[in-house]
Design a protein around this nucleic acid. Structure first.
Lengths: 223, 223
DNA sequence: GTTGATTTTTAAGAATTAATAATGGGTTTC
DNA sequence: GAAACCCATTATTAATTCTTAAAAATCAAC
């Protein structure tokens, strides 16, 4: 889930904007001051920062500089100071977009998604229980720790994700992953990989919660 | 020199804008209609396209789609249709920015440079661990000392930088660097270059921290 | 409970993939 | 024209993954 940090001191904007962002599937944190903002960046590692210039305890420009000097996180200014000078200053400090208030909701969302696309932060991220699969990074992660799936284990997991909820027969899985036409692999190979995958992604591999066995039919992931 | 294609049918705007862009060191080509625009893209391979929506012979949206479906060239809409619907449509078609007319010159320049930076089309100084890559000078430096990357090593590194975090398959890398259509390079050539690059940029080439191997999938830089 | 079928687990050799070292051809530079 | 450098390739070595087979465990039906 894409995390957005909203740095803003106007409470009504905070609540409106949070709602808008969450309705688009973003997870939102807020910060009202400089200190607050920087602490939140360090702690939460957001995927994008929406930043007002007028903050209670100082200037939003400083926050942008501070973030950009250390992290690679995209920053979008969202502010009432829509004059040309401020805009240019914002970009000079490394901002990725600059949107004047009052903003237009759908445009704001478009611009956020656009910047996420341009900065490559928009990994196709899929949540599976406490496992996070990122199809761009090619990783499966739990609690921030990479599970180091092998190529075939990873493809197997992706097949389950793409058919979430459906029971997949052994043959379907074999065809989908070992798709060399005509060439047959030992049927047990699949079984072995199911085990290996379970050993890596299940909290308790003996009682699998993610990959369930449907006796006589196949396997399914239903989460 | 960065080449900009200006697609616009108002002559006074063309002349003003051309002058502005050239004063900033860009080289400018112009096109007045759809046909014209697409032909120019194919022929000149500009680094960025500034695109009006209202064209003499049709719609600028179509031009954007046409460009984006084939090339990776950044497109900025620059148009009098500043309404929210058009803006969102523009972004949906893959535009990289959308600037309403009348535009403010300095802001326009900032936005152009910003998009060039985001798409990696322009020089920038990028930090990668303790390596500093300067795409203006074309150098990679550690502790003030040039690492003297060869042309191919440097291109390889740039490909990783432009896709930071993503797993790049061997084929993707081969296509991106040895892009002679149809011509194939020995697959192992890539492996050798990975090693050479690592030997130069990694502090401990045996335990690479910058370029990570993802067995069965490819390589990635995630820092 | 016993039986037969299905699934899980284990372990080890085969195969694949990547890393390293070394070679020769071609180009530029002095 | 020699030296230095870069590029592509081959051959060799190292490491991990994949596949298989066989034993153990589980389940369903009688």
């Amino acid at each position: 889930m894409t995390k957005i940090l909203l740095v803003e001191d106007d409470k009504s904007i905070i609540s409106n904007l949070s709602e808008l962002l969450m309705s688009e599937g973003f997870s939102v944190r807020t910060a009202v001051g400089q200190r607050d903002a920087i602490a939140s960046v360090e702690q939460d590692q957001p995927d994008l920062v929406l930043l007002d210039i007028c903050l209670a305890d100082g200037n939003g420009f400083a926050v942008c500089s501070a973030i950009k000097s250390v992290y690679n996180i995209p920053v979008i200014f969202l502010t009432a100071s829509g004059d040309e000078y401020s805009t240019v200053t914002g970009f000079d400090l490394g901002a990725d977009d600059y949107i004047p208030k009052p903003f237009r909701p759908r445009e704001l969302i478009s611009r956020i998604k656009n910047i996420l696309r341009l900065t490559g932060s928009i990994g196709a991220v899929i949540q599976l229980g406490d496992i996070t699969v990122d199809t761009i990074k090619g990783t499966a992660v739990r609690n921030g720790k990479d599970l180091y799936l092998s190529a075939l284990e990873y493809r197997l997991l992706l097949t389950f994700i793409n058919n979430r909820g459906a029971v997949l027969s052994r043959n379907q899985l074999l065809e989908s992953i070992w798709d060399i036409a005509g060439e047959f692999v030992n049927d047990n190979t699949l079984t072995v990989y199911i085990k290996r995958l379970r050993d890596k992604i299940e909290t308790d591999p003996q009682n699998p919660l993610i990959i369930k066995t449907v006796r006589g039919m196949g396997y399914k992931v239903d989460l």
